Computed example of a mutant assay.
Amino acid sequence: MAVDTSFYKSFMSEEIRDEGRAQGKTQGRAEGRAEGLLLIIEARGITLTDETREKITTCTDPHLLHQWLQRAATATTAEEVFTTDL
Rank of each mutant, 00 (worst) to 15 (best):
T57I: 14
A72T: 06
G45W: 11
M1K: 10
R71E: 05
G36N: 14
T58P: 01
T49F: 04
D18G: 00
R17E: 07
W68V: 01
T52E: 15
Q67A: 02
F82C: 03
S6C: 03
R29N: 06
I46F: 08
E51N: 13
S13A: 14
D61C: 01
R29A: 04
D4W: 11
F7R: 14
D18Y: 06
D85H: 12
Q27I: 02
R71C: 00
T57K: 15
R71P: 00
I16R: 14
T74M: 05
A34M: 06
T26P: 00
M12L: 13
L39T: 13
G28F: 03
V81M: 07
A34G: 04
S6D: 13
G45T: 08
M1Y: 10
I46G: 08
L48K: 14
F11D: 12
T26K: 12
R17I: 05
V81P: 03
I46D: 10
T74K: 11
A75F: 11
R17A: 07
M1E: 11
I40A: 07
A30T: 05
Y8R: 14
A78S: 15
M12P: 00
G36Q: 13
D50K: 15
R53H: 15
C59R: 12
L48F: 08
A73T: 10
K55Y: 15
L39F: 05
A73W: 09
G20R: 12
A22H: 05
M1A: 13
A78L: 05
T52A: 15
T49D: 11
T57P: 03
W68K: 02
T83M: 03
E31Q: 14
L86D: 05
T76C: 02
E19R: 13
T49V: 05
K9W: 06
H66C: 00
S13I: 04
E14C: 02
F11M: 05
Q70I: 02
R53F: 11
E31N: 10
Q67I: 01
Q23S: 01
E51A: 15
E42L: 03
M1P: 04
D50M: 10
I41N: 02
L38S: 06
S13W: 12
V3D: 08
T26W: 03
L86Y: 09
L64P: 00
E42K: 15
L38Y: 08
M12E: 14
I41Q: 04
I46H: 12
A72Q: 08
A22C: 00
E51S: 14
T26I: 05
P62D: 05
E80P: 02
Q23V: 00
G24N: 04
D4E: 08
A43W: 04
D85K: 06
L37I: 06
L48S: 12
T58Y: 09
A73I: 06
S10D: 10
V3G: 02
S10N: 12
K25T: 02
E19A: 10
E31C: 01
I40Y: 06
T74V: 07
L39S: 09
Q70W: 01
M12W: 11
L38R: 12
E42P: 00
Y8D: 05
I40V: 13
L38N: 11
Y8A: 09
I40P: 01
T5N: 12
Q67H: 07
